[in-house]
Design a protein around this nucleic acid. Structure first.
Lengths: 213, 213
DNA sequence: ATATGTGAATTGATTCACAGCG
DNA sequence: CGCTGTGAATCAATTCACATAT
């Protein structure tokens, strides 16, 4: 009967960003029409998405920006802190370590790992890079909830398995490969190469419809 | 009757990566079952996705790895080169400029832009960073097809509009905001913060089902 | 009056079962 | 006999229309 569509979850994230911007700009009230316009979806869609979780508006008057923001944060589980580790301190791992906006939603970078002895021991964003041999131990001790997986594709599955076994609940997978989620772990892909290839498909579309005889 | 589901396009990209790996590992033939296992979808799904574009297999014998790879590349428009520009040479822009795998599918980095005079003139990945004032001019002259948009959210829409007006056909949007696609331009989002918030939702799911009375 | 919340209708995507070829 | 390719059936998501609350 239930199970929230994944597309709905993605849109909720978008609505949250929009109400956050509205709040910054000083707006106090908004409507499904406003949100729909900003999120590039229909107003029906906005209301239906919200209806999965409750009733947050006032008929005739729309939504309170503050209330809707609070409720969206609650729905998305953003009312508590998450401890984060980065696995793979290449260029991308380093860039993520220095990313400033993480703390805005209480994502706390607590550990960084690599296999390369040349990288182990270095300081990145106030953290000492540790060897992946210590992963299970450190993840448990620091109660890491979420890992950013920025290792090469060839080691991504093994690293994910190790993280799952150590009790990590969520993995943001930056490696361009599909990972089999360890039991009890949710994996979200962040694959810019895939996005690039989708672009390629849509760009060439206009001039298609040729058959290979 | 027509219109390819966007989910199908995403899966095609995955199938291509799988057959590329199969090719590297020396395999000559594969099947919808193989592909399904690797891509974490059903074999029906694989065959249906491919059926939108033609018949690429041999009944009873599966698919030739080489043929399927070639066909997937053709379907995805990856048989010709694309000229790429990066707009926004912050940390992420720089990391992308140095990303080694771009040339593998003939994506050619040809230009880099920033607004910051401190960055303009610097050398990155063999390119001189140009001021965005030159964007329209340079995009046209170098026949840029695709832009990586790595500017702050607040300037993302304006930059996208400038790129669209200059004739760019595709934009990979790394800014954490929804962009209104300029006419004739396709936008693909690559938003790791959104992925992180989705993770948060799925992590907290187990312990939910509380109502606000 | 106005904009939400929601069952019903529609549209779209996935699954299935098997016909069709090698 | 295998495994692909595909219409038909099922399932899910989106759209619609309107009753409902303020």
């Amino acid at each position: 009967m239930s199970a929230i569509p994944t597309a709905t979850v993605s849109r909720l994230v978008t609505y949250l960003r929009i109400v956050s911007q509205l709040e910054e700009s000083g707006a106090e009230r908004t409507s499904s029409d406003d949100l729909a316009r900003e999120a590039h979806v229909s107003a029906f869609q906005v209301r239906k998405d919200l209806a999965y979780f409750g009733r947050f508006g006032t008929r005739g008057a729309g939504y309170s920006v503050a209330t809707l923001k609070r409720e969206l944060m609650r729905i998305l589980g953003l009312t508590r802190p998450y401890n984060v580790a980065i696995v793979g301190m290449g260029r991308l791992g380093e860039a993520l370590a220095d990313y400033p906006n993480l703390e805005a939603y209480d994502f706390r970078l607590r550990a960084a790992f690599d296999v390369d002895e040349g990288k182990v021991g270095r300081e990145v964003a106030g953290l000492t890079v540790r060897h992946v041999d210590e992963l299970a131990d450190v993840v448990r001790r620091l109660e890491i909830d979420i890992a950013f997986l920025t290792v090469p594709s060839t080691s991504a599955q093994a690293a994910a398995d190790a993280l799952g076994a150590a009790g990590v609940q969520g993995i943001l997978n930056f490696a361009p490969t599909v990972i089999d989620p360890p039991a009890g772990t949710h994996v979200e892909p962040v694959d810019f190469l895939a996005g690039l290839k989708r672009l390629s498909f849509y760009i060439q579309q206009p001039k298609v419809k040729e058959e290979t005889a």
